[in-house]
Design a binder for these strands. Structure first.
Lengths: 212, 212
DNA sequence: CTATGTGAATTTATTCACAGCA
DNA sequence: TGCTGTGAATAAATTCACATAG
């Protein structure tokens, strides 16, 4: 294998590979060919072989890919080989949904703390997490929490972002479009549900106004 | 302007343009140059001019783009020029967050109905929406609801998807990775929060295990 | 003289096609 | 023979550069 700058698109696909491979492993499946995996994911076998080839070569010719080995490799590439801890800021409905969602664990991710500025919420226990005051954010580094999730109202997003950055957080997943990034080395991924929802009508066939 | 097949990436960017343009309009701003808009969005002015050029030419040379006109145009392109209605299925924490989120209106989108299969939730009122039994999904078409949002547990995702498709829904935003698409003409956009969260460590600088 | 609109150039990503290993 | 690994070919998207309109 030669050196390649890894396409961002390939990195974006890795979690999806991991997701389906974990399901396969759970079902007791031991190995899979690029063709079959492609079938599950809905794109071509080339894509899969090409993507894996950017990172190394961990298949067996004539046989396919060993699922366990592949999972280990992708985890390593994504730096999920040891547990990653994230702090959630903003315990509203969305925050609660994230806190209660059990699905991060399987990827090696753990929501390890939750914060809010509402006294009525502080102290409340959700699962094994107790909601803390946002002023405690500075303790994150000490606690080995490197990632943050922002689910606060728009108006509070920028200051939350700044506080997380100041706390030494390395990456942030934000549900608010309202923090316009500062001059940071913090990786930010923003999910704005409206941006996706609003795109549906464009693709809808023969869309008619709902005014009938 | 000549005919162009519109790049999917350009379509994906349009809602973001719309978002920032709406903010500018709200601030009373009347026009903006591709350079300034690019500054807000974090990419180059070429991108913006190129994207708009795929759809027509609605700027004024030497002057910039008229914000109101641009908003109208983008709305038209995205087929958001009349109100679009969506039904939410699955009133859990995530569903509630979506129902309570006031931010879709400004794009011309309205959550017009909510469904669940839990008798304890059916009949409950959230804002001006009353939660209905999922068996009522077949009434959607009649009510002019063309889009669906799936926020049900994984196990129920496939049947929810099928029910929405059977109800004549044109597009679906799903928060579940568990509906593997059938042979449909329904456009599906899936958001899997884990897929984004899990990507953060890859980009994090000098990521160390949190095991110290 | 400013800022759009758009072909052309460049970069990036996808798809192909096949050599080579199990 | 079957399926991977990977250069080469193709397609797509981004960036440039400049003619052109206001």
């Amino acid at each position: 294998m030669k050196y390649h700058k890894i396409p961002d698109e390939a990195v974006r696909r890795l979690p999806f590979y991991l997701r389906d491979l974990l399901t396969l492993a759970e079902q007791g499946r031991k190995s899979i060919s690029s063709r079959d995996l492609a079938g599950l994911l809905g794109f071509g076998p080339w894509q899969i072989r090409k993507d894996f080839c950017y990172f190394g070569s961990f298949g067996t010719r004539g046989k396919g890919y060993d699922i366990e080995k592949l999972i280990t490799q992708i985890r390593k590439i994504l730096k999920l080989n040891s547990v990653r801890k994230a702090a959630l800021v903003g315990v509203g409905n969305l925050g609660l949904a994230v806190l209660r969602y059990p699905g991060f664990r399987v990827y090696g991710f753990e929501i390890a703390a939750a914060f809010d500025n509402d006294p009525k919420k502080i102290g409340r226990k959700i699962g094994n997490i107790t909601v803390e005051d946002v002023s405690k954010l500075r303790t994150l580094k000490k606690r080995g929490i490197d990632f943050g999730i922002i689910s606060v109202p728009c108006a509070a997003a920028q200051q939350t972002f700044d506080a997380l950055a100041a706390a030494g957080i390395k990456g942030i997943l934000s549900f608010s479009p309202c923090q316009k990034k500062g001059p940071e080395k913090v990786k930010v991924i923003t999910i704005d549900i409206a941006m996706d929802l609003v795109r549906l009508p464009y693709y809808a066939p023969t869309s008619r106004p709902s005014t009938r």
